[in-house]
């Protein structure tokens, strides 16, 4: 699980209302949600972010509502990974549940600007800023979260557990 892409740097406390405004929550279609992603922050951002890019943000990314539409919209933009100083908790769960990896590393966030080329290795927990020539170590992704990413999210994971006759989530 290694990704290489361009960084898009955002600020602190980016909330789910600016990730995907509630007025668009009349659909569950990922592509349609992606067209309004970050709209109230910058209406052009969703066009500028390219598949493979990496969103970089400050503290408490994803604060606010439980809407899973938020990580779905980011994922549907083609964003491979979100790197932040910290994440709000429902957003954190939702992202891993749908297979969108998140990494926490305040130093890497501080050392990155929009446009920098990043290489992220999820299993190793490293972030390489290729533009600045810096290597950072993120907080390790908890094993259970890594497992969710490996199988493609919580639904696949639960299906595996159910098929194995465990009938539960198998923790």
């Amino acid at each position: 699980m290694r990704y290489r892409g361009k960084a898009w740097k955002l600020g602190d406390h980016i909330d789910t209302d600016v990730i995907i405004p509630a007025r668009y929550l009349v659909t569950t279609d990922p592509q349609e949600l992606a067209r309004h992603c970050f709209e109230d922050l910058d209406p052009t951002l969703h066009e500028q972010i390219q598949p493979g890019d990496i969103v970089v943000a400050g503290e408490n990314f994803g604060q606010g509502s439980s809407r899973e539409h938020a990580p779905i919209a980011i994922q549907a933009l083609g964003v491979r990974c979100v790197l932040a100083k910290s994440f709000a908790r429902i957003f954190y769960r939702n992202s891993f549940n749908i297979g969108l990896p998140l990494l926490e590393c305040p130093e890497a966030v501080d050392g990155t600007e929009t446009g920098d080329e990043l290489e992220v290795d999820l299993a190793a927990g490293t972030i390489h800023n290729l533009t600045k020539g810096q290597l950072y170590h993120a907080h390790a992704i908890p094993p259970f979260m890594l497992r969710l990413l490996q199988v493609g999210g919580l639904i696949n994971y639960v299906r595996e557990q159910l098929q194995a006759g465990r009938g539960v989530q198998g923790l």
Binding site: G64, S65, S66, R67, E68, I90, N94, N97, L162, V168
Partner: peptide
């Protein structure tokens, strides 16, 4: 829904989750 935390006033553990978590809980 994130404001599920509301019900904690009753002395319950109440927390908001996303739709996928809810789907898993509805099934299991």
């Amino acid at each position: 829904d994130s404001h599920t935390v509301n019900h904690g006033a009753l002395g319950a553990f109440a927390t908001g989750v996303g739709s996928t978590d809810l789907a898993a809980a509805m099934a299991t």
